[in-house]
Design a protein around this nucleic acid. Structure first.
Length: 259
DNA sequence: ATGCCCCCGTCCCGGGGA
């Protein structure tokens, strides 16, 4: 069973690429981010026409996450637990979770957090606490969980072509990285790091300044596996091919193979 | 240097992304 996460930077703009990816047989489950469309506008018909199921948590213009699969998608839950009064007013669609082929999968679009410091950075760190809370429950219940998506965090210097270019950025800030490592310290496995410890496994290249052509990439899209899932981890990788297509997303798919 | 590029909206600029 392959589970893949992909920030598509608008599902409308990337529908052809996503349908091609589903049809290619490269994955059994897709965790999408940055749909940038409402649930009413979600292209359910196009996916059902190729035999795929979908559960979406969208909003107008910004954010939006979805779970797609050839398998049934059951027990869908949207949003993270609220830890404060402010959390209850959060209307950003950044988390959806469901059960697919016995795995509990979460599609994550973690806030960018720039500029930092500032309210957007505070929101990022608060959101990471809420994710930690949910990850802790899945861990405690010994559920095989795969939490994948755009974490907007570069965990280590090997996850960036040039860390000095990102000094002071929310994606490289020590507080963001510490919050990411607190997820790992719960007992989760960063699948790409586990399979490719040597680094240089990028998932995002900026549209600007020829970043793709120069391979000025960063690794910010991650698949975190609970112990019950990581014990079944067989392989993981990053599929760079879609980043080289016409009108690509600036992110490319990241996948795990679990048995 | 916060621009280079890309997407969205009721739209030819500005907000947001990373």
């Amino acid at each position: 069973m392959r589970i893949t996460c992909w920030n598509v930077n608008s599902l409308k703009a990337r529908l052809g690429h996503v349908l091609d990816y589903c049809r290619s047989g490269q994955t059994d489950c897709l965790l999408l981010q940055e749909l940038k469309l409402t649930d009413e506008a979600f292209p359910h018909d196009e996916f059902s026409a190729i035999g795929w199921n979908a559960a979406a948590h969208g909003q107008k213009t910004y954010n939006g996450v979805a779970i797609l699969s050839r398998h049934d998608i059951i027990d869908v839950a949207k949003g993270l637990p609220c830890l404060t009064e402010d959390d209850k007013a959060d209307e950003q669609s950044r988390y959806i979770e469901a059960t697919v082929a016995g795995f509990r999968v979460g599609s994550i679009y973690l806030p960018n957090g720039n500029p930092c410091p500032g309210p957007k950075f505070d929101y990022k760190l608060a959101w990471m606490k809420r994710l930690h809370s949910r990850a802790q429950v899945l861990f405690a219940e010994e559920i095989p969980a795969v939490l994948g998506g755009d974490y907007n965090v570069m965990p280590q210097d090997i996850d960036c072509y040039d860390p000095s270019a990102w000094a002071g950025d929310a994606l490289w800030h020590m507080d963001s990285r510490a919050a990411f490592f607190s997820l790992l310290n719960l007992g989760y496995t960063d699948a790409i790091r586990a399979i490719h410890p040597q680094g240089a496994q990028y998932s995002y290249w900026d549209y600007q300044a020829g970043a793709w052509q120069r391979d000025n990439g960063i690794r910010i899209d991650h698949l975190l596996l609970s112990p019950e899932a990581s014990s079944r981890l067989k392989n993981a990788g990053i599929d760079k091919r879609p980043r080289g297509l016409e009108r690509p997303s600036d992110h490319t798919p990241v996948w795990v193979e679990v048995v």
